[in-house]
Design a protein around this nucleic acid. Structure first.
Lengths: 250, 250
DNA sequence: TGTTCTTACTTGTTATGACAAGATTGATAA
DNA sequence: TTATCAATCTTGTCATAACAAGTAAGAACA
């Protein structure tokens, strides 16, 4: 039986790639294509819509940017899954937040090094520039999928101690509090949206150009000393933050 | 004099478009191309790098996704400017936050309508589904550039009253408090990253696929009644949120 | 039964080409 | 001096084509 010919308005002012994108998007939302299900290949879509491959790729590229699909080189195109969230009002490590909500999570240290603090890190941690600090890079996993890259900067000795701990299964915050005796108190955050670049994309298995929730977090002890400065890069397609704030308070 | 030939490693395993992207990116960061300055055209880059137009477009497409450049159909490619931020711990309207920091800001109402609340809006505002609410859509400007789309839902009568006010220069929060006598107290937020779609992109003059900081905010009065439910879409390339949070508090 | 190789299918990269659509600039005419 | 038009330059859209690189499945061989 002949494959079904897709209906498109070739006389429409709407670009072909936009029409195709909207048709595919509607199919994702109406459940025709389900999360993690493989979508038709580029060749199949070319045949169905009777367009060139570049037109199909442009439509798919947009869906990918919107986080609705992902592609695996040589394998296929898949529908993305909906996202988790963390309550932001509470200063918590990722593991404690996720496990209290029933998600399976762990992290993998992908790099550890001791290096001279750059201007930003020195200023945040109230150290002299070029003073040695520890940098710990971890990829966080949620339900066995990578969800974020976490780059932490701490004073050298603390970092060198931490790297010997089981950072796969334990949060740095809990180790600092329970094992090392620091009273963590407050944190300053700044939050913005960015796009994944190639190296980040490689680490958390996300295509370049995907939306990223980027957070800088500086955590203080109870005596107001900065202790832990982090860059957190969460994939925007799978994660959101929530919080409750008040009016009139600083 | 002959245009300078760009150096590239044609025998490198790194794709040509990636090399070009990194060269251009370095030039943005080192100041060779400055914010709002027009970059070389696609044709000029084709000639300089001796590659096809699609290779150049792919490199530029990536820089665009990273928010470093923007394109104007028929005009050219420009370097983006660095971003502003809002302190998130304080529940403020955009105008009051930005004007207290010396930015020039205003908003434009792009749509107002009264419509039946959908499930989400009804639930957030503690109304019956299909009860009529007011929807106010505004584009916010910072230093005369569009920076966000704000879609507010309020009970019908309040919305119908508000739309008669000068929403170009005044914040809805201040009108609710000072003119209408509501004591705004707290808000719940959820924050995530997404990519701009075509319609949003058109409203805030951003290319599709650019990173967006998307925030849902539900504001309550002092007697804990939900009053104002908003979707806020901030361009990620020009804006970030900051806040200070505490450990151990809910 | 396990391993290796080949084939086929998938997405990634790059090229050439053409025309559409928007913006700008300069020339011309009123 | 102003308005209009044409030419040129810019990005947007779409086509055809070829080869690279990754994955999977099935066949063949040990």
């Amino acid at each position: 039986m002949e494959p079904k010919k897709e209906t498109m308005l070739t006389l429409s002012p709407v670009p072909l790639y936009t029409q195709i994108r909207e048709i595919l998007r509607a199919r994702i939302f109406d459940g025709t294509y389900k999360a993690h299900e493989q979508m038709p290949s580029e060749s199949e879509l070319m045949r169905s819509f009777e367009v060139s491959r570049i037109t199909v790729r442009q439509a798919l590229g947009d869906l990918q940017k919107q986080g609705l699909i992902f592609k695996i080189h040589g394998k296929g195109t898949y529908v993305s899954q909906p996202k988790a969230f963390q309550n932001l009002a509470k200063l918590q490590g990722f593991g404690e937040a996720m496990s209290s909500m029933g998600y399976e999570t762990f992290s993998k240290v992908v790099n550890f090094r001791v290096l001279p603090a750059d201007k930003t890190v020195a200023k945040k941690l109230d150290l002299a520039e070029n003073e040695m600090v520890a940098e710990i890079r971890r990829v966080r996993y949620l339900n066995r999928s990578p969800i974020s890259l976490d780059v932490s900067y701490l004073p050298r000795q603390i970092g060198e101690r931490l790297i010997k701990e089981d950072l796969t299964n334990r949060d740095i915050f809990l180790i600092l509090e329970n094992d090392y005796g620091y009273a963590l108190d407050q944190a300053e955050l700044q939050i913005e949206a960015m796009l994944a670049d190639e190296s980040l994309g490689r680490l958390i298995q996300l295509e370049e150009g995907s939306p990223i929730l980027r957070i800088e977090r500086l955590t203080f002890t109870a005596d107001n000393q900065p202790l832990d400065f982090e860059y957190l890069y969460y994939r925007g397609d799978a994660f959101q933050y929530r919080l409750r704030i008040e009016r009139g308070r600083i």
